[in-house]
Design a binder for these strands. Structure first.
Lengths: 193, 193
DNA sequence: GCCTGATCTTGACCAAAATCAATAGAATTT
DNA sequence: AAATTCTATTGATTTTGGTCAAGATCAGGC
C-alpha cells in the first residue's frame, strides 16, 4: 500500500524503513469513482492527494459559466488546490476523477505536523513544490511566447501520456482554446509533415 | 545593510540576531545601473537576488526575435531564473535593471549550504517558493479564464505599484498583448465608468 | 443489438487582436 | 535649448481564433 507514494518520495529524498513507517501513520487511502469529486468550488481543500492509480483533473468555472481545466494528474502526480490548502479559505477550483482512482491523502494537520517534526518531509515538500513551480513556469512562458502550433507540440512532447488518456477537448480547455481550434491545429501539423 | 532582505525573511520566519549574522556571511551585495544585465540568455543563473532598491524585469526572446517579459521585481521581491539555478543549465531568460538597483545575492553554493545547515533557511525558502507558485498560478488562471479587460483590471489590483513604475508597453508584453491592444483596453475601461 | 450521448472534424461567418502607419507628447541626451 | 529617443494613442487593414452548425464515428448503457 502507498507504493507509488513512497516510490515518488524516495526519488526526491531516500527514506529508511522506519521513516517510511513513521510517515505511513499520517496517510489515508481513498478511492474515487469516475466523475466523483475530490473537491468542489467553495470547499476548503483539507488534503493534498497523490494518485496511486487513475487520472484526475482540476478546473474552474469562469463568470460566463464556462469550464477551464487548470491541471491534469496521472499516477504518481500530486493534486489539490494549494492556494486553499495553504490559506484554509474556500477554493475556486473543482477537482474530479476522469477514471476510477486510488489516492493517498495527506491532511493539512498531518502535513503541518510532518513539517514540524520531520526535516526530510519538509525537504520532500520543498522539492515537490519547486517542481510544480518549474512546470507551471514552463506552461506560462509557452503561453506568452509560442505560436499555437508550437504550444501544442510542446504540450505533446512534455505530456504524451496525458494526450493518450484524456479527450482532446479537455486538452483544448487546458490550453485555453476552443475544441475546434485545437482540431484545426492538429490537422495543420499533420498535413505539414 | 540587507535591511529589506531580513525584513522579508522575518515576515516568514523570525530570526535571532545570531541567526541573522550567520546568514549574513552568505550574502553578497551588488549594485546595477539602469539597463545593466544581471543574467543573459545562455548564462547559468548562479545566484538568486533580492531587490533592496530599484526595479527589474526578466524576459525571453522568442524564435521570431520578439521579447516577452516574464516577470517584474520591485523592492523586497526575489528574482532569478529558478530553472537554471536549480538545474545549473544555461538560462533561456534575460534579467536586467529597469532602474538603478541594489541587490542582495545568494549564490548557489551558499544556498545549498544554508539548506543543509539551517532548517530555518529551508523553511524560509519553502515559503518563498510557495508564494511564487501561488502568484504564478493566479497569473496562469487569469490567462485562461478571464477576458482581457478583466485580466488587466486584475493585474492593476494585484500590482498597482508596478503600473506606476513601468512603461505601459512592458505591461502589455508581460500580459502577452501588443501595446496597441493594451492602450485600447485602457480607453475602453476608462470610458465605461 | 440498438440507441443515446460523447467526441472529433469541417465549413461558413463573425469578433477580436495583431499589424502597419501616422501622430503627438514626454523624457533624455547632447 | 535643440535634438533624439521613448512612449502612448488612434485609425485602417489583415489575420487569427471563436462561434454556430452540420455530419460522422465511436463507446457505453439499456
Amino acid at each position: 500500500m502507498y507504493d507509488v507514494f513512497f516510490q515518488k518520495f524516495n526519488e526526491k529524498i531516500s527514506l529508511t524503513e522506519q521513516e517510511e513507517n513513521f510517515i505511513r501513520q499520517y496517510l489515508t487511502p481513498k478511492k474515487l469513482r469516475k466523475r466523483q469529486y475530490l473537491l468542489q468550488e467553495g470547499d476548503i481543500c483539507k488534503s493534498i492527494a497523490l494518485l496511486e492509480k487513475g487520472s484526475m483533473r482540476s478546473y474552474l468555472v469562469d463568470p460566463a459559466g464556462q469550464e477551464h481545466i487548470t491541471a491534469f494528474a496521472l499516477e504518481g502526480w500530486t493534486i489539490g488546490d494549494l492556494s486553499s490548502f495553504h490559506s484554509e479559505l474556500p477554493s475556486t477550483q473543482n477537482i474530479d476523477a476522469l477514471e476510477d482512482c486510488e489516492l493517498v491523502l495527506i491532511s493539512k494537520s498531518a502535513h503541518d505536523e510532518l513539517l514540524r517534526t520531520m526535516p526530510k518531509y519538509e525537504t520532500y515538500f520543498r522539492l515537490l513544490i519547486t517542481d510544480a513551480y518549474l512546470a507551471l513556469q514552463k506552461r506560462t512562458l509557452s503561453m506568452i511566447s509560442l505560436s499555437l502550433d508550437d504550444r501544442y507540440k510542446a504540450f505533446m512532447e512534455s505530456y504524451p501520456n496525458i494526450a493518450q488518456r484524456v479527450p482532446q477537448h479537455m486538452i483544448a480547455s487546458y490550453m485555453g482554446l476552443s475544441p475546434e481550434t485545437l482540431s484545426r491545429i492538429r490537422s495543420r501539423i499533420n498535413t505539414s509533415k
